[in-house]
């Protein structure tokens, strides 16, 4: 989606579907525990790996700032409302800061980073067409849905132009200075109308090219997987396994269902 992003070493050679799979393999185990150690180990290794792939600190901040901002906020919520345990330092109505909640808060903050960063960085540069080809040819998802979704993503550029024009027109019509919420609501609604109209026309255009019939489809572009893909999956699995193992060994492993 973001084509202006710089190329990453290694990662860019991997099929987007494999990157998605690697993301699942890497971060799903981390979701099963709330402990600072597993998250910190994973985060540390991730940062080293991405640095090796060519992610500079500047790029990191530019692409992941929402995650960097929201991580401490998630921690704050846990700090106040995490299950109380041990010494209590402060309390107000339902909010209680305790030894237990402090530990949970740190764990959640690091966990958000460990889970969020790889998603943002693995997909720095992803070509929707390549992703769709992979999803249909490698993951064997239903082609009609994959290609329908792909067609829809191409309309995004038009939506952006629509949005700009609508913003200018609101000023021209005398309602540009007041009632931001109302104005944005009328624009969002008009955008939805235009989007559905365009979608209907696009559907007709796609059908006119034989899309959606029962004829088995061929693929003009081949989506392939190879050694790099296997390697990325192996790395993801290893990082996940190592992080969990370290936490279990150190005794901090804290499954979410406990």
């Amino acid at each position: 989606m973001v084509s202006s992003a710089p190329r990453l070493r290694f990662v860019d050679r991997v099929n987007p579907v494999t990157r998605l799979a690697a993301l699942v393999v890497l971060t799903t185990p981390l979701l099963l525990t709330v402990d600072w150690l597993s998250a910190a180990v994973a985060l540390g290794i991730e940062l080293v790996l991405f640095a090796l792939a060519g992610v500079t600190p500047k790029l990191l901040v530019a692409r992941t700032w929402p995650i960097l901002v929201s991580a401490p906020i998630a921690g704050l919520s846990m700090l106040l409302y995490g299950q109380p345990e041990g010494t209590e330092y402060w309390s107000l109505w339902l909010a209680r800061i305790t030894d237990g909640s402090i530990e949970l808060a740190v764990a959640v903050t690091v966990r958000v980073l460990a889970i969020g960063l790889p998603a943002a960085l693995l997909f720095l540069r992803v070509d929707p067409t390549e992703l769709a080809d992979g999803l249909a040819q490698i993951a064997h998802l239903p082609a009609r849905f994959v290609l329908g979704a792909l067609g829809a993503t191409r309309l995004v550029g038009l939506f952006v132009e629509d949005w700009r024009a609508m913003g200018l027109s609101r000023r021209a019509r005398g309602i540009g200075d007041h009632g931001v919420i109302r104005r944005v609501a009328t624009m969002a609604f008009a955008l939805l109308v235009l989007a559905i109209r365009r979608g209907s026309k696009l559907a007709t255009a796609m059908e006119a090219r034989g899309f959606g019939s029962d004829t088995p489809r061929t693929w003009a572009r081949v989506s392939t997987v190879g050694g790099s893909d296997a390697a990325l999956l192996a790395i993801a699995a290893a990082v996940a396994a190592l992080s969990i193992a370290v936490a279990v060994w150190a005794g901090t492993f804290n499954p979410v269902w406990s």
């Binding site: 067409t129 090219r209 034989g210 061929t218």
Partner: peptide
């Protein structure tokens, strides 16, 4: 339909 010229022209052939 698609993002690149060649892919767009090929789309109908693929469906056939």
């Amino acid at each position: 339909i698609l993002a690149r010229v060649g892919d767009d022209v090929a789309f109908g052939c693929e469906n056939l």
